[in-house]
Computed example of a mutant assay.
Amino acid sequence: MPSVHSARVFQMACAALLALALSSMSAGATSRIKDLANIEGVRQNQLIGYGLVVGLNGTGDTLNNIPFTKQSLQAMLERMGVNIRGATIR
């Protein structure tokens, strides 16, 4: 009977090793925190805009006398994929 008992112990040891090997393998279904949770204040769509301030006639800046206005408008349009380098802006 000792050979039957050792065969049974060997089978149990092999089954335990197989179970251990299978449990240590990654399941392949990983999840990211950002896919499972919503963070308050975070938006999916990106908002882009350009402000316009109005006031007294003739008191504001124009594209001709203030170069920063033209540069900031060009930079915003280029970030949106519109190339206006070399074009006349009015």
Rank of each mutant, 00 (worst) to 15 (best):
L56C: 13
I66H: 13
Q71T: 03
R8I: 07
L20M: 13
G58N: 03
H5W: 05
T62H: 03
R85E: 08
R8N: 08
A87I: 00
G28W: 04
V9Y: 02
A21P: 01
N45C: 04
N64F: 15
T62W: 01
I33A: 11
G86R: 06
Q44A: 15
G81V: 12
F68A: 12
M1V: 07
L20G: 13
L20C: 08
M1H: 06
K34D: 10
I39T: 07
Q74G: 06
Q74S: 04
T62D: 02
V53L: 10
L52H: 10
K34S: 10
E40N: 11
S3H: 02
A29C: 14
I48P: 06
S3Y: 03
G60R: 03
L47C: 08
L73S: 05
A7M: 12
V4P: 05
Q46I: 05
Q46T: 08
S72Q: 11
M25A: 14
I33R: 10
L63F: 11
N64E: 15
I33M: 06
I33T: 09
N83A: 07
A16K: 01
S3W: 07
S3I: 07
S24I: 09
Q74K: 00
D35L: 04
L20D: 09
S23V: 04
E40M: 08
P2D: 13
L18R: 05
R8P: 04
R32I: 09
L18Y: 03
R43P: 01
T69V: 01
A27E: 04
I48S: 12
E78I: 02
S23P: 05
I89G: 00
L52C: 09
P2Q: 10
R85D: 02
V4K: 09
I66T: 07
G81Y: 13
H5Q: 10
T59S: 10
F10N: 04
G51I: 06
D35E: 06
Q46L: 04
L52D: 08
A75F: 09
L18K: 05
A16C: 03
P67Q: 02
G58D: 03
L22H: 10
A16S: 06
K70Y: 02
M1R: 11
L47I: 09
T30D: 11
G86V: 10
E78H: 08
A87D: 01
L56M: 15
Q11S: 11
V9C: 06
A15L: 14
S23Y: 10
N38L: 12
C14N: 13
V82A: 12
Q44N: 15
R90N: 01
K70Q: 02
T62G: 03
S26K: 04
R79M: 13
A75K: 05
L22G: 15
